[in-house]
Design a protein around this nucleic acid. Structure first.
Length: 417
RNA sequence: GGUGAGGUGGGUGAGUGGCUUAAACCGCCGGUUUGCUAAACCGGUGUCUCGAGAAAUCGGGACCGCGGGUUCGAAUCCCGCCCUCACCGCCA
């Protein structure tokens, strides 16, 4: 475990909190035993006193009460100490991220991520006058960022006409494909309470990333992962319930403080975007096979959309707090000449299920299940790449697989808006 | 938003201070009987946590929506909160 945490570039003083936790846990046990012993004798006295009163031995009962009072007095100190120890312990435990899987490479930042599956065909080349997607959006009136700013603020795009229809087409296409792959569709609430946000690990780590509705104490979901995975909070499954495969479309809301400039132009980074998520709850023995299946699923979507992509394995420095192993899918955006992250597929092992109290019966024992999820897919950047890579003098050609969904094969000024 | 009624185990549901170790019924698991199925009968049937043990298991503690309080003793009494249902108001 310590070796694993070093992959997250933990310094020695951070590692020492592990020792502190072990120490606190010992104290906790000792105090708990001490208190429970007292409780046991209090229980005995209570029945005894009841008995004595019934027999009319009031004097003896009074004597016993004095005894009880002294035990209670004696319990006070350990009780207070236990409360403190428990609080400190819980706070420390919430600070511990998931332990990276053995495949996770060492590294500081996304620079150190490992290309797991490269794009082995030539990358598309566009003519010199090729436009980035935010220019194309203006040209064909597909979405409008300034209108969004008027309604809300920066980072809330308004999709219009063919842009809005393309958005809807992609959602339906992704949902249908997930359905075909055996995922059960869920349409969850977009606001969740703090318990829900904590169980999937958004709280306390990503507090600042979520929009918060103070009046009702609700959080706007940053991803469908949160409500969908939480369907199984406080659940005990049978082994025969596996695998559990869920999918859901939701808008996702992210405050995304930080990072400005060209990289966040257009749809590259927005506060609200649409996403179809796939979630799996698996037997620990099968979770890595499930992860591979999810990679296959996402790959097949990108193949069908005819987008060039690569898969990278996140290094320790880039790995999310809750994840044990994450693969990112990056689509090549020809006009921007850069790779855009469009999907992130992760195995959380027992990290979330511990907080979810999501277990299954393994014979007589109960064990924590494994949870996984992945974007399949995130819309905004897919739209960006589709627009840029498929631009041509006559318009933007959409991949065949989308035609039944859009009812138009080409985006052009001539197409019905 | 207003008024009222409620929240008990997998389900229904009894339980107004100690006889509750939460009744009873249903469900589920095991067994007996029986050509098979069914029925009947018998036994078992929660979660968390601490300790002992190689394990089966055994022992302690907590848990009747959540959190406090009263009491020697709380499912039961008191206070706060959350939620559900019904009706009214508003409304896609």
């Amino acid at each position: 475990m310590l070796h694993g945490l070093k992959k997250r570039n933990w310094k020695d003083d951070q590692l020492s909190i592990i020792n502190r936790i072990l120490e606190l846990d010992d104290t906790r046990r000792r105090l708990q035993q001490e208190i429970e012993q007292c409780q046991a004798s209090l229980k005995k006295y209570a029945t005894e006193i009841g008995q004595l009163y019934k027999e009319g031995k009031a004097q003896e009962a009074e004597a016993a009460k004095v005894e009880v009072a002294s035990i209670k007095e004696q319990m006070k100190a350990p009780e207070n100490e236990l409360r403190e120890v428990k609080t400190e312990l819980e706070n420390l435990l919430l600070e511990i991220p998931n332990v990276p899987h053995k495949l996770v490479p060492f590294g500081q930042s996304e620079e150190d991520n490992e290309v797991y599956k490269a794009w082995d065909k030539p990358l598309p080349e566009l003519p010199q006058d090729a436009l980035p997607h935010w220019e194309l959006a203006k040209k064909y009136q597909l979405f409008d960022l300034e209108l969004g700013t008027k309604l809300t603020g920066a980072g809330f795009p308004v999709y219009l006409g063919q842009g809005a229809r393309l958005e809807r087409a992609l959602i339906n296409y992704f949902l249908d494909r997930a359905h075909q792959a055996g995922y059960k569709e869920v349409s969850p609430p977009l606001l969740v309470n703090a318990d829900t946000a904590r169980a999937t690990g958004q709280l306390p780590d990503k507090e600042g990333q979520m929009y918060y509705v103070e009046r009702d104490n609700f959080y706007l979901i940053p991803t469908a992962e949160v409500p969908v995975t939480n369907l199984y909070r406080d659940t005990i499954l049978e082994e025969s319930d596996f695998p559990i495969k869920l999918t859901g479309y939701t808008p996702c809301f992210r405050r995304e403080a930080g990072s400005y400039g060209a990289h966040v132009r257009g749809l590259n980074r927005v506060h609200q975007f649409d996403k179809v998520e796939i979630v799996r709850i698996e037997h620990p023995d099968n979770s890595y096979q499930a992860l591979d299946e999810m990679l296959e699923h996402v790959s097949s979507l990108l193949d069908e959309l005819e987008l060039p992509y690569r898969i990278v394995r996140l290094c320790g420095g880039d790995l999310g707090f809750t994840s044990a192993l994450t693969y990112d899918f990056e689509v090549y955006s020809a006009a921007q000449k850069r790779w855009l992250e469009v999907s992130s597929v992760s195995n959380f092992e027992t990290f979330q299920s511990h907080r979810l109290r999501l277990r299954f019966k393994d014979g007589k024992k109960k064990r924590l299940a494994h949870t996984l999820n992945g974007s399949a897919l995130a819309l905004a950047r897919i739209v960006a790449a589709l627009l840029e890579n498929n631009q041509s003098p006559e318009g933007i050609h959409l991949p065949k697989v989308l035609h039944p969904y859009t009812n138009f094969p080409l985006i052009s000024p001539q197409t019905t808006p």
